[in-house]
Amino acid sequence: MVSLKEKLLSDFEGLKIDDREADRLFIDTQKEAVLSLLSYLKKAGYNHLAMVSCTDWIDEGKFELVYIVNAYLSGDQVFGKKEKKCIVIRTKISRQSARFMTVMEIFENAEPYEREMHEMFGIDFEGHPRLTPLMLERDYKIPPFRKDFDTLNYVNNTFGKIPSIEQRKEGLK
């Protein structure tokens, strides 16, 4: 029987597949292939998007988006019981023009993850219905999870600038 890895390599071009780990399959791919890869995997039975996350590789000038999909039951029926349960898809997008396609058409539960990444990393997801603030209340010039956001400087300039009550009293005199 053809394994999932061989099948993926034959169906898609330019995939780097790493299957050294026991339970997880790592796929590095171009950003154009992510949507088709996700829908392919969903049809194959990997029907749960567990997580979408992002890493800021500031030296390369890239954001790395990570999609983790899981199979619970029906994955076995397609590829046999020995297949891996967890698939990690990694892709890199440019840091300067941080935009990507939303995957909500395939996995609807990607919505809060994408909103969070929009908020924390400033990535625009095209086709996302509401990219409104999710958690943050304050305004930040640079999204706070980017590596070039200087947190210590920010803290000193905002929270550190607030005087203590004793200083306020002295200022009053």
């Binding site: 943050l136 930040y140 947190t151 803290v155 929270f159 005087p163 203590s164 009550i165």
Partner: peptide, 17 residues
Amino acid sequence: NGGMYYDSYNTITSLDK
């Protein structure tokens, strides 16, 4: 004084202010 969150972007550093 903020403890391990001394340089966090949304954690205040001293409460008694």
